[in-house]
Design a protein around this nucleic acid. Sequence first.
DNA 1: GATTTTTTTTGATTTTTGTCAAATGCTTGT
DNA 2: ACAAGCATTTGACAAAAATCAAAAAAAATC
Lengths: 187, 187
Amino acid sequence: MSKLTETLNKFLDLEQKSLQAFLNKGNIREVSKSEKLISKGEICANLFFILKGAVRSYYFKDDKDITISFSMEGEFITSMSSFISQSPSYENIEALEDCKLWHISHQDLMGLFDTHRDLERVYRLILEAYYIRVEEQLIFSKFKNARERYEELLQQKPEIIQKASVGQIASFLDMSIETLSRIRANL
Amino acid sequence: MSKLTETLNKFLDLEQKSLQAFLNKGNIREVSKSEKLISKGEICANLFFILKGAVRSYYFKDDKDITISFSMEGEFITSMSSFISQSPSYENIEALEDCKLWHISHQDLMGLFDTHRDLERVYRLILEAYYIRVEEQLIFSKFKNARERYEELLQQKPEIIQKASVGQIASFLDMSIETLSRIRANL
DNA sequence: GATTTTTTTTGATTTTTGTCAAATGCTTGT
DNA sequence: ACAAGCATTTGACAAAAATCAAAAAAAATC
């Protein structure tokens, strides 16, 4: 749990009361490898924080699944568009390995915002950080070719290489399984 | 100015006092076609709202410029990573045509958040909406081929086709000028 | 308004990456 | 430990898009 507190503190020094209120509203959920946190079509009620493990978010294109993101220990994860608008999710999120997750419901979070200003602010700051991250990802996808995208992933999230399959990584990097396999073959 | 009020009201019903305080801190800036709002290397002090006109945000890759986004009347625009962290901008933003912009400084905005809660909330809601938009853009870039990306742009922002050059559009759609030209040639 | 400069289009060719198919390697359950 | 089922690699070929080069069109400058 202290991992969560630590992460929040990096963004803003919360009042003790606010932090307690926040932590009290949350629950722990353990999911095993391959289990889904969120499925397409359902309304995503929760914001998750990964205490342990790693997850993958993906869409379906035709019948193949396309990885949109990998998230690791110490990161927040949810189907953002579904969570924000409380409408059915387009994406699926599954555990890449056994995970321990902290989570809070949309309703509880919104309730906390009304009584604890600083929680709304820390949420806003986290959102800003995540916004920058997606924007960077978008730019990065324009600027690099297949090999460079793979090398960037190696730099940024090397753990992924162990935890995800070639197919999952290939679709994330926007290339075919075979291309990724060939890139790995010659360095 | 009412365009701005209208946009804010779509997100949240602001208190009259808050709205007034917000509007009072802002200023109007007129820029002519091709003029830069933000240049690489400078700290972006302002959040802009486009009252009239359209702008383009771009990066440099080697010596060529790559369009990252087009923004139209009624949209907020800034170099988000620079504005949020008050660090030097990686991107440039220029006017695609003569523009009338409303803008507020980072400092003033942060100041307003302390005295007007609902302004911080409306900012957060806007940020959420923009987050979803970037995420969609990222997914869309994975799911479509060159022709489909062009068709999508035609659907989403047809005005762009008139206002931007082939080169600017091509880099935005992540294809060469020649490819875009050929796509337009046969429907 | 003619000329220069820039932008856009068109054609030929090359490069990159995708697709299909087969072979190999790795897991998992019994 | 073995078989059955997946996942990954490798090879041959095809498709998509990039690059290079030149012509045509449009815009800017004098």
